[in-house]
Structures are given as structure tokens and as C-alpha cells.
Write a protein that binds this DNA or RNA. Structure first.
Length: 261
DNA sequence: ATGGCCGGCGCAGCCGGA
């Protein structure tokens, strides 16, 4: 089973790229971030035609997440627990049944947090605390569980082509990186780092020819529960989509799990 | 040359992103 995450930076602007990639990559489950659409505006039909069920948690103008699945949803949960006053749509979770049992997938769009020293950065850190609490709850279920999405965290210097450019950025602050390490310390495995120590990037800014210079960062991550990590067959980053016409600034990251019993 | 973009909203130019 192939499970992917992609920050598509606007689903309406990206619908042709999304359907092309779904056809080519044939993922079973996809978490999308920054759909920048309300639920009613989401172009579900074009995706359903390709054989996917669609669940959205949208918002007007910005943010917004969705999950696509070839298998029917047993359950869908919208919103990250821990703050009923948080109106930003940044988390969606779904459960599907497979021969081996169930697979639970949480798709997240972690706050950017810039500029540092503002309420935006404080919100990012509070959101990460809530994510840690929720992950601990889910890990207690001892299921194959994937926490995937745009984390807006550069975990290590090796995760940036030019780390010195990010020292004053919320994505690379010691507090952001420490919160990401605490999350992993609960027992989650960073899938990309399970297969390589080399540089892997998932985002290249639109500005300054960043993609042409490979001036990228790794901020889209697939974290796996022990029960999911035990089933890991392959990991990939579909970098070529960044070279498409009208690209998202992020590219898909995916894992393949053995779920046939 | 030390800067260079993009989507949404809504119809100009600002907000938010990373």
C-alpha cells in the first residue's frame, strides 16, 4: 500500500497536476495540505473519477487539508484535538481496513510560525505540543499509524542545502527542532531517515531560482509508528513534479507498506 | 547583478506562505 503526502499550494490551481500525479504515481492514500479551499469548493469529482474517496477539512482562502483513499474510510476525524478555539484547518485523520487489520493516517499542516518572536511562532509551538499529545494517544493504540504532512520543520543541518540561510527562520529554530525531536522520541520513525543519511529536499522556494540551484529544504515528513515501520517496504520523493509547469513549491513524499497480512 | 514568486480574493493590491 502506497501512502503519500503533498502540500499542493492551492487545489484549484493544481487540479491538473494533481490528477496527472495520481495517475502516474497510483498512491492508495494521499494527504493534501494547503488546499486553500472550503469543502464545497474542493474539486472532488475529478478525483473521484480516478477511483478515490475524498474527505476534506477546508477553510476559506488559506490552510485546509484533505485525505484521498482508494479504500473506503472507516472513520474520519477533522481538527487536531486540544484547543476547541483553534479555527485553522490543519489536521485530518482517517482509518481504513486492510487484510492485516487497519491503517490509521493523520495528515497535518503544521503552522509556519514566521516571523519568530511573534504570536505566530507561539502558536506553532503550542500546536506542536498538541500534536505530541495526540501522537502519544494514537501510539497507545499500537496500530500501524502514519503522521504525515508539511511539518514546517527543518530537523537537521543536512536537511537544508544552505542551513545558514535559515537560522532566523521559524522552520529551523532550536524550539521547533526540539519539539520535532520530542515527537520522534515517542517512538515515531522518520521514514526518509530510515533509508538514507544523504540530502533529501521536499521544498524549493519559487523565488531566486531555488529549484535550479537545488537550494531546497526537507520539511515534509512521514513519521511511522513502530507497527507501521515494521511494514515499511520503500520510501520516495517525487522531485520531478517540481519541474512541471505551474508547480507546487512542495513535492510528494510517499511510503510503501506491506499490509497483506 | 547579492534579486528574482505564487495563490486567493476579487478586480487593486494586500495577505500569507517558507
Amino acid at each position: 500500500m502506497k501512502i503519500a503526502t503533498w502540500n499542493i499550494n492551492g487545489v484549484k490551481a493544481r487540479i491538473d497536476s494533481l490528477t496527472a500525479w495520481l495517475t502516474e504515481a497510483a498512491p492508495d492514500i494521499v494527504c493534501l495540505q494547503e488546499i486553500k479551499s472550503v469543502d464545497e469548493g474542493f474539486p472532488a469529482e475529478a478525483i473521484e473519477r480516478l477511483g478515490y474517496n475524498v474527505a476534506t477539512h477546508g477553510q476559506k482562502g488559506f490552510n485546509g487539508v484533505a485525505i484521498l483513499s482508494r479504500l473506503p474510510f472507516d472513520e474520519v476525524i477533522r481538527g487536531l484535538p486540544g484547543d476547541p478555539d483553534d479555527g485553522q484547518s490543519r489536521y485530518i485523520e482517517a482509518v481504513v481496513s486492510v487484510p492485516a487489520g487497519v491503517v490509521r493516517v493523520g495528515g497535518l499542516y503544521l503552522p509556519n510560525g514566521n516571523p519568530i518572536g511573534t504570536e505566530k511562532f507561539a502558536y506553532k509551538l503550542r500546536w506542536m505540543e498538541r500534536l505530541e499529545a495526540h501522537a502519544a494517544d494514537r501510539l497507545a493504540l499500537e496500530e500501524p499509524f502514519l503522521l504525515i504532512g508539511d511539518y514546517n520543520v527543518i530537523p537537521e543541518p543536512a536537511d537544508a542545502r544552505r542551513p545558514e540561510n535559515w537560522v532566523n527562520d521559524a522552520l529551523y529554530q532550536p524550539e521547533s527542532r526540539a519539539a520535532f525531536r520530542r515527537l520522534k522520541s515517542l517512538g515515531l520513525v522518520d521514514a526518509v531517515r530510515a533509508v538514507t543519511d544523504g540530502p533529501v529536499f521536499t521544498f524549493w522556494d519559487y523565488q531566486a531560482g531555488a529549484f535550479q540551484k537545488n537550494d531546497g529544504i526537507r520539511i515534509d515528513h512521514c513519521l511511522l509508528s513502530p507497527q507501521a515501520a515494521d511494514r515499511l517496504l520503500a520510501v520516495g520523493v517525487d522531485k520531478h513534479t517540481r519541474g512541471w509547469e505551474k508547480p507546487s513549491d512542495h513535492v510528494p513524499v510517499w511510503v510503501e507498506l506491506k499490509v497483506d497480512g
